[in-house]
Design a protein around this nucleic acid. Structure first.
Length: 451
DNA sequence: TGAAATGTTGGGGCG
DNA sequence: ACGCCCCAACATTTC
């Protein structure tokens, strides 16, 4: 029997992991995770914690069926070739990724390593280059992509063999166990719990997904990023006949679309997909950027979102759109700076998804929001957080404000504010820009770039 | 997966 | 009773 090295990457699960099943069916397996330096250096605190929790959950999963996860340190391009040689590996199995870094590394390794590589796409419902127009291209408009995407079958891959494990010659995993809070809500088990909870409320998804004070979304974004659950496993629990389910399935299609687009257009993280917007005159203002990051814009809904992000590593989707739009349109700061901050800080920070969505908000992407669509943070706040519950949760200094006034405290006189315990400029900042002026400036700047 | 500006309509107040 | 104005309320267009 030959030996396969199974390289876990952004697929920290063994359940419904087709690549894993395939490796186990005909080989002895050596499960490996390569702890590459950029996994740590590119991640904020929450994201790093989430990663280590998921990694140790995977190690436990493998242990529970009699194996052991071998963790080796270093850039994979440096350490894997030697590791493969020293452990007499015959072939290599892994799930691929669409990012430029990942593709260049994998390309390099497939030349460098003599063992045969078997590549799968367990992180997506459908692999890149499999959802195509009649002309054989990926659609640059979402709806035609989606119409094609839903017609393609996406079977599950169930494990039916007991893996035969081999151990690596070295295992220098040095994660101090006390850094890992014992937690049952991580790994595949945590993902399954989140899925089960979501299924109970999924019929209301269309209504409640936009209300940040309600737990109406799936909370599966980080699981999908780390691969603690596969998207097909989620898809198979949803019914296209139920409206809420169908809307969520649509979100899974957006996720595939952004991944496929990145695969086909590797410069998406760096450049406007719609090149006519590549010469927008962005403002280079690091102080404004920092005030945005820290949640000190003076717009309560924006500050609430940014504080939820830095406190928890997660932000509600509706608020992601509002805060991102504020940075790009109101502050006129380059979407790439916001994208970088989100990606570091979010526990679900993902190159394809984050860049795709930021370019959508900035209006520079494929099938993106039109440049003249400028969210009014006060109207958005009144519409989606009418009771102010979300704002009060994350901007407690505004707790005493009334439901109607909490969205725009600067519109009220000093005496009224004092009555509610607020002193603008002292307990809570003045708005850093005037909405109408900022809107005009954004429209003028975008219009100029189009000429 | 907007919002603001502009246009239209119709009821009510009033001379 | 009539014309006129005001201005919500709704519709359309523009950014």
């Amino acid at each position: 029997m030959t030996t396969a090295l199974f390289w876990f990457r952004k697929d920290l699960r063994i359940k419904n992991n087709h690549a894993w099943v395939k490796a186990c069916e005909t080989h002895r397996v050596l499960p490996v995770f390569v702890l590459e330096p950029q996994i740590i250096s590119n991640a904020g605190l929450h994201r790093r914690n989430q990663f280590f929790l998921n990694l140790s959950a995977l190690a436990e999963e493998i242990q529970s069926i009699g194996g052991r996860l071998n963790v080796i340190h270093g850039p994979a391009s440096d350490v894997l070739p030697r590791y493969v040689r020293e452990n007499n590996i015959d072939c290599l199995y892994f799930n691929a990724d669409t990012t430029p870094f990942s593709r260049q590394r994998d390309e390099f390794l497939s030349n460098e390593i003599s063992a045969q590589t078997h590549i799968f796409w367990g992180g997506l419902v459908h692999p890149p280059e499999t959802v195509l127009t009649q002309k054989g291209e990926i659609s640059k408009v979402f709806t035609p992509f989606y119409k094609k995407w839903v017609t393609i079958p996406a079977p599950l891959s169930l494990q039916n063999v007991q893996p035969v494990f081999v151990s690596g010659r070295e295992n220098d995993w040095e994660i101090e166990q006390d850094l890992i809070p014992s937690s049952s809500d991580v790994g595949h088990r945590g993902a399954k719990e989140r899925l089960e909870r979501f299924l109970k409320v999924a019929d209301d998804y269309q209504e409640s997904r936009n209300i940040p004070s309600v737990e109406g979304t799936s909370f599966l974004s980080s699981d999908l990023h780390f691969g603690t659950i596969g998207p097909r496993e989620i898809l198979h629990r949803l019914s296209p006949n139920r409206e809420g389910h169908r809307q969520f399935i649509r979100q899974l299609a957006w996720r595939d679309w952004y991944a496929h687009l990145l695969y086909a257009n590797q410069e998406i993280p760096l450049k406007a997909a719609n090149r006519s917007y590549e010469n927008i005159q962005w403002r280079d203002d690091s102080e404004d950027l920092e005030n945005w990051e820290k949640g000190r814009t003076g717009y309560p809904i924006v500050d609430a979102g940014m504080r939820q992000l830095s406190a928890t590593g997660w932000m509600h989707n509706r608020v992601r759109m509002i805060t991102a739009s504020f940075l790009v349109k109101h502050l006129l700061i380059d979407w790439r700076k916001g994208e970088r901050y989100f990606r570091r800080t979010l526990i679900d920070g993902d190159v394809a998804q984050n860049c795709g969505n930021w370019q959508w908000v900035a209006g520079t992407g494929f099938d993106a929001a039109p440049y003249f669509r400028v969210f009014n943070p006060v109207l958005q706040s009144k519409k989606f957080d009418p009771s102010g519950r979300y704002i009060r949760r994350w901007v407690p200094e505004l707790e005493g404000m009334s439901n109607s006034a909490i969205h725009s405290p600067w519109e009220y006189d000093e005496a009224t504010l004092r009555k509610h315990g607020v002193a603008l400029g002292e307990t809570y900042p003045f708005p850093m820009v005037n909405h109408a002026e900022a809107r005009d400036r954004a429209l003028a700047t975008y219009k100029k770039a189009r000429e």
